[in-house]
Design a protein around this nucleic acid. Structure first.
Lengths: 169, 169
DNA sequence: TATTGTTATACTCTATAACTATA
DNA sequence: TATAGTTATAGAGTATAACAATA
């Protein structure tokens, strides 16, 4: 699986479980112990977000990783692959194919830096910047729809906690 | 990478960036656009939680997936592999190796169900139940340490949001 | 026919080691 | 030596297709 599940809700679907079939109906599996950990809820929620994100990006020809890389390149023109790998928290070797893909789709350019001919300066093309606009808008609007039912205070607290967990480690 | 990064903080390490070196110091990469999405914060935070969880489980001989499966088996004695796969939201073929691993470590038993000889009833052994106790305690105490600096209200709001995202999809 | 568990296979993401070309 | 980018490779997680045994 592309780490992002394209899986659809084939969940238990909450069968009515009338008295008639109660006997042979398997009881739903309890995850009460797992639920005690916030990390469990985070994994489950992230799966949902990730699936939604992937489906949002697919029609634009992007994956989560190429989306992230494109956004960082547009926002930080001229950065190097090492800097980008560092920002994305992945190893340099794994970034190569991501940058290759963006370059092949003519969304970015690798340009040699005259002052240090080892490094590439990464810059988005016009097409890359245009796709960036569309992709960012799509991602934010999809997420907004997913989070519509929460109030600002809840979302703010969630963001604070998540950000701070990241910061510490 | 085992999806759980064993990576340590080799992060930018916030160099002082004095006026002297400001010129040749690369500016830190900005992720301001990505930060607008809660999903981005969730991914970053989940990586941290996941790394901590993996390191917590490693000395106990468990991975995240075998831990999850063991907990669900102990909490739901006799469940089938299909039920377990469904609860873990993974495909049945991928559960086989997880159950194999738990069985080889003599933490669980596969027992044929007389009334339906296609299915296995999964049950933990005494060793499995003992490891469950230790693992659950370790996981919860590690997470408590990681979340110590947040107040109950923040954590409650976070849990509410994450749970609800999972529920909807 | 349909379901349970299984095998085989493929794809994505990630990590490490070792290479090259520059510095 | 050390760094930037690359290649090759391996391991973990996940998905689909197809099979045997059983219902």
């Amino acid at each position: 699986m592309p780490q992002i599940s394209g899986k659809v809700a084939k969940r238990a679907a909450g069968r009515p479980a009338t008295k008639a079939n109660a006997a042979q109906e398997p009881r739903p599996v309890s995850d009460k112990t797992l639920r005690k950990a916030l990390g469990y809820h985070m994994k489950r929620a992230f799966n949902v977000i990730q699936t939604d994100l992937s489906e949002t990006l697919k029609p634009l020809g992007l994956r989560m990783l190429t989306y992230t890389a494109l956004v960082l390149i547009v926002d930080n023109p001229g950065l190097s692959q090492s800097q980008l790998a560092d920002a994305m928290d992945i190893e340099r070797p794994n970034l190569v194919v991501i940058v290759d893909e963006l370059e092949q789709n003519e969304l970015i350019l690798r340009e040699r830096v005259p002052s240090d001919r080892r490094t590439y300066a990464l810059n988005a093309t016009l097409a890359g910047r245009q796709l960036y606009e569309r992709a960012v808008a799509a991602v934010l609007s999809h997420e907004a729809r997913l989070l519509a039912r929460f109030d600002a205070g809840q979302l703010e607290a969630t963001k604070t906690v998540l950000q701070s967990i990241r910061a510490e480690g």
